[in-house]
C-alpha cells in the first residue's frame, strides 16, 4: 500500500545542521516570532487539568502579554475531550480554535469503537480540531492496513473538524518508519501530520520533522493536496522555533508558513517567543518573572 523509501539519517542530520546555520536577524526575526506565535497550539494535557487550569490557558491564548495588546493570539488551545466545552466557551468570540486529543490518547490502546466514540464526543463538545494517535503497535507489527483503516474511519467521524494524526515518532524506531507512517496517514485523509503526544521521549526533533516535511512535499507534488505539519513537544526556545520555520520554508516553500498548514504544539515556547519579542523591541534581555506562567 505504501512504499518504503530509503532515508539516510546522516544526510538528514547534515541538512538539518545546515538549516541551523541560517542566521535570522532583525526584521526577519520579528516576522518569525510573530508567525511562531500565531502558529502555536497552547497545550495542556495533564491528568490534573482542572477547569481553572484550562481557563488560565485560554486567557493566555487570548492575551499572551498584557504589555503588548496588539500581539497576535495563538492558533489554538489543545486539551483533553472533557475540557473542550469549557475552552470553547471562553474562546467563542475569538479566532482561536479548540483542538482536542482523542482516540485513547496517548497510547491509542483501545478498541476502534471506543476511539470513534472518543472523537465523536470531542466533536460534539465543539472541538474544531482532533489530534488522534495512530496504533503504533499495529504499525510496528506490519499491520499497515489496520492503521490506515483506523485513520480513515476517524477522519469520517471528525466530520468538519480537522484531523491531525499523531505518529508518535519517538516510538517508530527509524526515519524510514516515520516516513512510511507519514505517507500512510496522508493517504488515509490526515489534514495534518503531527510528531508526538508529548508523553514520550524523544518528541519532535528536526531530523524527524524534516522527513515528515519531505513526505508532505512529495504528497503535494503527486496529489496537489497540501497537508499541514505539527511538531509537538521539545520545542522550548524561539531559536528552535525559528529554525523550524527555516526548515519549512526551505523544504515546502512559503505557502506552508501559515497557521493553516503549520503549528507548534508547545506549552513553554510561548513565553520564550514573547521574551524575544520584547527583547527585539527594547534591546534588553528579559526575565520570565515578567511573563505570565499559564
Amino acid at each position: 500500500m505504501i512504499n518504503r523509501i530509503p532515508i539516510d539519517a546522516v544526510g538528514i542530520q547534515e541538512r538539518v545542521t545546515r538549516i541551523c546555520t541560517r542566521s535570522i536577524k532583525r526584521e526577519s526575526k520579528l516576522q518569525a516570532l510573530d508567525l511562531a506565535l500565531r502558529m502555536m497550539d497552547l497545550t495542556t494535557l495533564e491528568g490534573s487539568d482542572s477547569d481553572g487550569k484550562v481557563r488560565q490557558l485560554c486567557n493566555k491564548a487570548l492575551l499572551p502579554y498584557t504589555e503588548l495588546p496588539n500581539i497576535p493570539s495563538v492558533a489554538a488551545v489543545c486539551v483533553y475531550p472533557n475540557r473542550v466545552a469549557l475552552a470553547k466557551n471562553i474562546l467563542k468570540n475569538s479566532s482561536i480554535s479548540v483542538a482536542s486529543v482523542a482516540t485513547a490518547f496517548p497510547s491509542g490502546m483501545s478498541s476502534l469503537q471506543i476511539k470513534l466514540d472518543d472523537v465523536e464526543y470531542a466533536v460534539s463538545e465543539g472541538a474544531d480540531e482532533i489530534d488522534m494517535v495512530i496504533s503504533r503497535g499495529a504499525f510496528l507489527s506490519g499491520e499497515y492496513t489496520k492503521v490506515y483503516d483506523e485513520i480513515a474511519q476517524i477522519k469520517q467521524a471528525c466530520g468538519s473538524a480537522h484531523l491531525k494524526v499523531i505518529l508518535e515518532t519517538g516510538e517508530l524506531g527509524s526515519l524510514e518508519n516515520i516516513r512510511m507512517a507519514s505517507d500512510l496517514a496522508m493517504k488515509a485523509g490526515a489534514d495534518f501530520i503531527k510528531t508526538s503526544t508529548g508523553k514520550i521521549s524523544p518528541a519532535a526533533s528536526m531530523p524527524v520533522v524534516l522527513v515528515m516535511l519531505q513526505a508532505i512535499r512529495d504528497n503535494y507534488n503527486s496529489t496537489g493536496v497540501k497537508v499541514g505539519m505539527k511538531p509537538a513537544g521539545g520545542i522550548r526556545s524561539s531559536k528552535q522555533a525559528i529554525q523550524y520555520l527555516v526548515m519549512v520554508k526551505e523544504t515546502l516553500g512559503i505557502d506552508w508558513l501559515n497557521p493553516s498548514l503549520f503549528r507548534f504544539g508547545a506549552s513553554s515556547l510561548a513565553n520564550d517567543v514573547l521574551m524575544q519579542w520584547v527583547k527585539e523591541k527594547t534591546g534588553r534581555y528579559q526575565s520570565l518573572n515578567y511573563f505570565s506562567n499559564d
Binding site: 542566521s23 535570522i24 532583525r26 526577519s28 508567525l35 520554508k249 512559503i254 508558513l257
Partner: peptide, 8 residues
C-alpha cells in the same frame, strides 16, 4: 502573514 519571509 508575511508573503515572502526572507532572511535579513
Amino acid at each position: 502573514i508575511p508573503l515572502d519571509w526572507s532572511y535579513a
